[in-house]
Simulated scan of single mutants.
Amino acid sequence: MEKRAIDWWVGIFVLLGIAALVVLALRVGNLSGFAYNDGYVLHADFSNVGSLKPRSPVKLGGVTIGEVTHIGMNPKTFMAKVTMWIEPQVKLPTDTGASIYTEGLLGEQYVSIQPGGMPQDLQPGGTITMTQSAVNIDQLIGQMVFSKASGK
């Protein structure tokens, strides 16, 4: 009887360990994000999104206020069109800016929002027009090497 009780406890312990690993994997993979029931969608066009991916965070002052839901191509401007879901309590002015930054030196990229000062708010489905694209480290290093080689 004791052998059977020990087997049950070991089984329960193994199942709890597997459940903990699944929760950890979802957290690390950013798959346990927002529910899209509330909130609203905004768009922004960037000339270069770098390695930005769907489900990347959208931050305002370092606080996550939403996430990227889709990245596609704007056929009229030939720029990358980023679609973002924003929490419902966050109201952004019409002159809001958006930039793509990297978290740390080699971390994931995210969209940083810089609110403006206009009294009117962006409407759901609106577009952020003031954008700054992702910085390409390879281009920066190439420019630095070229400028050093040319003596400037």
Rank of each mutant, 00 (worst) to 15 (best):
M1E: 15
E2Q: 09
E2L: 04
K3E: 13
K3H: 11
R4A: 14
R4K: 09
I6D: 11
D7F: 01
D7E: 07
W9Y: 12
V10C: 10
V10N: 02
G11W: 01
I12S: 06
I12L: 03
I12H: 00
F13P: 00
V14H: 09
G17S: 09
I18D: 06
A19P: 01
V22P: 11
V22D: 01
V23Y: 15
V23L: 03
L24S: 13
L26W: 01
R27Q: 07
G29D: 12
N30W: 01
L31A: 06
S32H: 03
G33A: 00
G33N: 07
A35G: 15
N37I: 03
Y40D: 15
Y40V: 08
L42H: 03
H43V: 14
H43F: 04
S47I: 15
S47C: 14
N48C: 11
G50C: 06
L52V: 13
K53N: 15
K53L: 14
P54M: 04
P57A: 03
K59M: 01
L60M: 06
G62F: 13
T64R: 10
I65Q: 03
G66S: 05
E67Q: 13
V68M: 08
T69D: 04
T69W: 05
H70G: 10
H70M: 14
I71Y: 11
G72C: 08
G72Y: 10
G72E: 12
M73T: 08
M73G: 12
M73A: 05
N74K: 01
T77A: 06
T77V: 06
M79F: 10
A80N: 10
A80H: 00
K81A: 14
T83F: 11
T83H: 09
T83C: 11
M84P: 14
V90C: 02
V90G: 11
S99H: 04
I100M: 03
G104N: 12
G104V: 09
G107C: 06
G107A: 05
G107N: 05
G107W: 02
E108Y: 07
E108A: 12
Y110M: 00
Y110T: 09
V111W: 12
I113Y: 10
I113R: 01
Q114A: 05
G116D: 11
G117P: 13
P119Q: 04
Q120F: 02
D121L: 11
D121S: 01
L122C: 10
L122M: 04
G126P: 03
T127V: 07
T129F: 08
M130F: 06
T131G: 09
V135K: 03
Q139H: 00
G142K: 10
G142F: 07
G142Q: 03
Q143H: 00
M144I: 15
V145K: 01
F146I: 06
S147D: 15
S147R: 10
S147H: 03
K148Y: 02
S150M: 14
G151C: 09
G151I: 00
K152R: 14
